[in-house]
Amino acid sequence: MGMAPPRELTRDERRARSREAILEAARELFAGHGYEQTTIRMVAARAGVDPALVMQHFGTKEALFDAVAQLRIGIDEALPGPPEQLGERVLRHVLADVERGPDTGLPVLRSMLTHPHAAETVRCAVAHPDENPLAEILSGEDAQLRAALAGTLVLGLLVGRYLLRIPEVERVGAAQLVKLLGPCLQPLLTGSPDRSCSGPEEPVESGNATDHLAALAEAEQARAAAADELDRRARSALAAGASYGEVGRALGITRQAARKRWPAEVVDNSDCRAC
Results as ranks from 00 to 15, higher is better:
residue 74 G to P: 14
residue 75 I to D: 14
residue 75 I to T: 08
residue 78 A to S: 11
residue 81 G to L: 10
residue 82 P to Y: 05
residue 82 P to M: 10
residue 83 P to E: 14
residue 84 E to K: 10
residue 85 Q to R: 15
residue 85 Q to F: 13
residue 86 L to W: 11
residue 87 G to D: 01
residue 88 E to M: 07
residue 89 R to P: 00
residue 90 V to C: 10
residue 91 L to A: 02
residue 91 L to I: 15
residue 92 R to F: 06
residue 92 R to C: 05
residue 92 R to Y: 10
residue 92 R to P: 05
residue 93 H to C: 13
residue 94 V to Y: 03
residue 94 V to M: 14
residue 95 L to G: 07
residue 97 D to A: 14
residue 97 D to S: 12
residue 98 V to H: 06
residue 100 R to G: 00
residue 100 R to V: 03
residue 100 R to E: 00
residue 101 G to R: 04
residue 101 G to S: 02
residue 105 G to D: 02
residue 106 L to F: 04
residue 107 P to H: 11
residue 107 P to I: 13
residue 108 V to Q: 01
residue 109 L to H: 06
residue 111 S to R: 03
residue 112 M to L: 02
residue 113 L to N: 08
residue 114 T to H: 07
residue 117 H to E: 09
residue 117 H to A: 12
residue 118 A to D: 02
residue 118 A to Y: 07
residue 120 E to G: 04
residue 120 E to V: 02
residue 123 R to E: 09
residue 123 R to L: 12
residue 123 R to G: 11
residue 124 C to K: 09
residue 125 A to N: 00
residue 126 V to L: 15
residue 126 V to I: 15
residue 128 H to G: 08
residue 128 H to P: 01
residue 128 H to D: 13
residue 129 P to I: 00
residue 130 D to C: 06
residue 132 N to M: 08
residue 132 N to L: 04
residue 132 N to A: 01
residue 134 L to Y: 11
residue 134 L to Q: 00
residue 134 L to D: 02
residue 135 A to P: 01
residue 135 A to E: 00
residue 136 E to A: 14
residue 137 I to S: 10
residue 138 L to F: 08
residue 139 S to K: 13
residue 140 G to D: 11
residue 140 G to H: 15
residue 140 G to P: 03
residue 141 E to P: 06
residue 141 E to D: 12
residue 142 D to P: 05
residue 143 A to E: 15
residue 143 A to F: 05
residue 144 Q to H: 11
residue 144 Q to V: 06
residue 144 Q to D: 14
residue 146 R to D: 02
residue 146 R to V: 10
residue 147 A to E: 10
residue 149 L to Y: 15
residue 151 G to Y: 11
residue 152 T to M: 15
residue 154 V to N: 11
residue 154 V to Y: 14
residue 157 L to C: 12
residue 157 L to M: 15
residue 158 L to W: 07
residue 159 V to W: 11
residue 160 G to D: 15
residue 162 Y to C: 04
residue 162 Y to M: 06
residue 163 L to F: 05
residue 163 L to M: 13
residue 164 L to K: 10
residue 164 L to V: 09
residue 166 I to A: 10
residue 166 I to L: 13
residue 168 E to L: 11
residue 168 E to T: 07
residue 169 V to Y: 03
residue 170 E to D: 04
residue 170 E to P: 03
residue 172 V to I: 07
residue 173 G to H: 07
residue 173 G to K: 06
residue 173 G to Y: 09
residue 173 G to W: 05
residue 174 A to V: 04
residue 175 A to K: 09
residue 175 A to M: 09
residue 176 Q to M: 05
residue 176 Q to V: 09
residue 177 L to Y: 08
residue 178 V to Q: 02
residue 179 K to E: 14
residue 180 L to Q: 05
residue 181 L to C: 05
residue 183 P to T: 03
residue 183 P to Q: 03
residue 184 C to A: 04
residue 185 L to N: 04
residue 187 P to E: 00
residue 188 L to C: 01
residue 189 L to T: 00
